[in-house]
Design a binder for these strands. Structure first.
Length: 529
RNA sequence: GGUCCGUUCAUCUAAGGGUUAGGAUACAAGAUUUUCAUUCUUGUCAUAGGGGUUCGAAUCCCCUACGGACUACCA
C-alpha cells in the first residue's frame, strides 16, 4: 500500500439548508480527516444554476461552524473562499461555478478518446421518447440501444457535427456507457459490489446551454485535481458509482482514484422513507442544525440551535447514528470522536432518527457544563426578562436546577421563584399539603426562621429540625407547606438551600404574604374540597 | 418495472460460528428524598420467514418477504 495523504471533501449543493443527514456526512468526513491527520475540504457544487438558493452556501458554512466542523481548506468558516490558488488554498477556487472554464476540456478529452460523444437532442425530443416508452409500460433509457437512432456525433458526419456545435446552443456531452461490462467496485463500508453496465444510461457530463458540467463530471474532475483520497458520501450515490469508476478509467486516473465509502441514510422516525423537512414539522423536531427561512417561499424551519440544543449534544447524537466505537460509551467530546472514529465501524443499514434520544444527549451535556457557563447562558434570558441578578447568584441557581433540566430554556420554569415571589400556587400541591392547621404552623415556622443568625443552609436545617422535633411535628407537613409558601409549587431543590440563597428577609416576606393574606390557599382549599 | 443496497427489542445499536443474544433511549414498577428531579434496583421487549452448510448459525450460502436508494441537460 502506498502512503497517501488523506484528503476528504464535503461537497454540498447550495440548494437549501443542510439537513441533519448532510451534517452527519460532513461530520464523518471531518472525523476521518482528523483521525488520519489529513485535510478536510469544503467544496461547493453549484453546477445547477437553476436550483441556486440565495443564502444556502452561507448557511452551510455557518451550520458546520456551529457544530465545530471546521474545514482546513476550501470554504472557510468565515465564508470567504480563495478565487485563485495560494499557499493556504492550493486547489482554489472551491466553488464549481468559479471553475467553470476548466471542465469543458475534460469533456472534450473524453469525446476525443471515444469515451463520450456529442448529443443534439432537444429536451422535447427526450420528453416525447420518455412518454412514448411510458405508454408502452417501459422505461426509456438513453443507452447503446437508442443512441445510434438519435442526434449524436456517433452517427453524424464530422462536418455536420462541427456545424451543429457552432450553431446549436443546446448540445450536451454524454458518456458512452459500455454495452455490457461487469464493473467491479469496492466500497469501504459495503465491500465488493458488481454492476453490469447494460442497465446504465449515457449520462450527460457537460451542457453547452450553460457551459457547466453535471455533477458526475465536475465531481470526478475536481476530486482528481484536488487529490482527494477518500470519498465519503451518502448511500444515494451508490448507484452512480459504476459511472464514476468508468470515468476514472476513461481519464486514465485509476491509479489515483479515491476510495469510496457510502454512508447509510437517515430515515424517518416513524413509517418509511428517508428523513425530510416535512417530518420535522409533522413530528415536532428540527431536521436542520440552524433555523432557516426560505428566501423564495418564506417558509420557516426550526433548528437545533434555536431549539436549545448544544452543538456538542447534536454532534454526539449524529456520530452515533450509523457508527459506534464498539464499546458501551455513548457520550463523547469531539476530540474523543476524532480519536475513535473509523469507517470500519460504520453500520450498513439506514437509521431511523429518534428525537427522544436527542433530548437525552442534550440533558447529559447540560449537566456536564459548569454552573458558571450555564449562568452565562441563563443570564441572556434573564436580561430579556428584565431581571438583573449577580453572576454567582445565577450560577448557584444553575447548580440547583441543572439536573432537572434538558435545555437552558427550561431554567426559567424551574427557577423563576428565585427571582420573583410566587403569584399563584399549584392547586394540586395545595390540596395535598395544606389543611386548616397549616397557617398556624407557618406562623410558628416564620418565627423560628426569624431568629436564625447567620441564615445559612446548615443553621436553618439545624434550627428547623430542632423546632420540629421539640414540638413533635410532622416533617413532611412542615416542609411541604413551607415550600408552597416560597416556591408556589411542589418542586425544586432542598428547602434549606433555597432559603439560604433567597435570604431571610425574602423568605419572611413570602411567608408573611401568605399568612397575612390567607386568601390564595383558603379559597382553593375550601372551594375545591 | 429495472438495478443496487439493506433487514437483531418500539428506537439507536453490541455480539468478527459456541453468550441465559449485551448496552442505551423510551415505557413500567419499586427504593431513596421535605417536593420535583436526580440516583439506584427491577421489569416488559428482538435475531423477518423458509431452506441449506456445520457437532453447533444472529453470524456463512440460497430463496422469499419487506424496506430503502437510484433510474433528469438535480445534486
Amino acid at each position: 500500500m502506498t502512503v497517501r495523504k488523506v484528503r476528504v471533501r464535503f461537497a454540498p449543493s447550495p440548494t437549501g439548508p443542510l439537513h441533519i443527514g448532510g451534517v452527519r456526512t460532513a461530520l464523518f468526513n471531518y472525523l476521518f480527516a482528523r483521525r488520519h491527520g489529513g485535510d478536510f475540504i469544503i467544496r461547493i457544487e453549484d453546477t445547477d444554476s437553476g436550483r441556486f438558493v440565495p443564502g444556502a452556501e452561507e448557511y452551510i458554512v455557518r451550520a458546520l461552524a456551529w457544530c465545530n466542523i471546521l474545514p482546513n481548506e476550501g470554504l472557510t468558516s468565515e465564508g470567504s473562499v480563495a478565487e485563485k490558488p495560494d499557499a493556504k488554498n492550493p486547489h482554489a477556487p472551491y466553488r464549481q461555478s468559479q471553475r467553470k472554464a476548466l471542465y469543458r476540456k475534460y469533456a472534450e478529452q473524453l469525446v476525443e478518446s471515444g469515451h463520450a460523444y456529442y448529443a443534439f437532442d432537444t429536451p422535447e425530443t427526450l420528453d416525447a421518447l420518455r412518454k412514448e416508452a411510458e405508454t408502452k409500460k417501459e422505461t426509456f433509457i438513453y443507452n447503446h440501444a437508442v443512441r445510434t437512432r438519435l442526434q449524436t456525433s456517433l452517427v453524424m458526419p464530422a462536418g455536420e457535427v462541427a456545424a451543429r456545435l457552432q450553431q446549436d446552443r443546446h448540445w450536451v456531452v454524454r458518456f458512452k456507457m459500455p454495452e455490457s461490462r461487469e464493473v467491479n467496485m469496492h466500497d469501504l463500508i459495503r465491500g465488493d459490489v458488481t454492476v453490469n453496465t447494460a442497465t446504465l444510461d449515457d449520462k450527460v457530463l457537460w451542457k453547452a446551454a450553460d457551459g457547466l458540467p453535471t455533477y458526475h463530471l465536475a465531481n470526478i474532475v475536481d476530486d482528481h485535481l484536488m487529490d482527494i483520497s477518500h470519498v465519503i458520501r451518502g448511500e444515494e450515490w451508490l448507484p452512480s458509482l459504476p459511472l464514476h469508476y468508468l470515468l476514472y478509467e476513461a481519464f486514465g486516473w485509476t491509479d489515483t482514484q479515491p476510495e469510496f465509502a457510502h454512508l447509510p441514510l437517515l430515515l424517518k422516525p416513524d413509517g418509511k422513507g428517508k428523513l425530510s423537512k416535512r417530518d420535522g414539522d409533522r413530528l415536532g423536531f428540527p431536521v436542520f442544525p440552524l433555523a432557516w427561512k426560505d428566501p423564495l417561499s418564506g417558509d420557516f424551519s426550526r433548528g437545533y440551535r434555536e431549539d436549545g440544543y448544544f452543538p456538542e449534544a447534536f454532534i454526539n447524537l449524529l456520530a452515533l447514528l450509523g457508527w459506534n466505537p464498539g464499546t458501551e460509551q455513548e457520550l463523547f467530546s469531539l476530540e474523543e470522536l476524532v480519536n475513535l472514529f473509523g469507517l470500519d465501524r460504520v453500520i450498513k443499514s439506514g437509521a431511523k432518527f429518534n428525537p427522544d434520544k436527542a433530548k437525552w444527549f442534550n440533558q447529559q451535556v447540560l449537566r456536564m457544563k459548569s454552573n458558571e457557563e450555564l449562568a452565562r447562558l441563563y443570564q441572556e434570558e434573564l436580561r430579556e426578562r428584565g431581571i438583573v441578578a449577580a453572576d454567582d447568584y445565577v450560577a448557584q441557581i444553575c447548580g440547583f436546577i441543572k439536573e432537572r433540566a434538558t435545555f437552558v430554556k427550561d431554567f426559567w420554569d424551574l427557577s423563576a421563584y428565585f427571582f420573583e415571589a410566587p403569584t399563584s400556587y399549584d392547586e394540586k400541591a395545595v390540596r395535598k399539603y395544606w389543611n386548616s392547621e397549616t397557617l398556624d404552623l407557618m406562623e410558628l415556622l416564620a418565627a423560628t426562621l426569624k431568629s436564625i443568625e447567620p441564615f445559612t443552609n446548615e443553621n436553618i436545617e439545624f434550627a428547623v429540625n430542632k423546632w420540629i422535633k421539640e414540638n413533635n411535628l410532622n416533617v413532611g407537613a412542615v416542609m411541604n407547606a413551607f415550600r408552597l409558601c416560597i416556591v408556589g409549587a411542589s418542586k425544586g431543590p432542598g428547602m434549606f438551600e433555597i432559603a439560604a440563597l433567597l435570604k431571610k428577609e425574602e423568605i419572611l416576606r413570602r411567608m408573611n404574604s401568605v399568612i397575612l393574606k390567607k386568601n390564595h390557599y383558603i379559597c382553593l382549599l375550601f372551594n375545591k374540597k
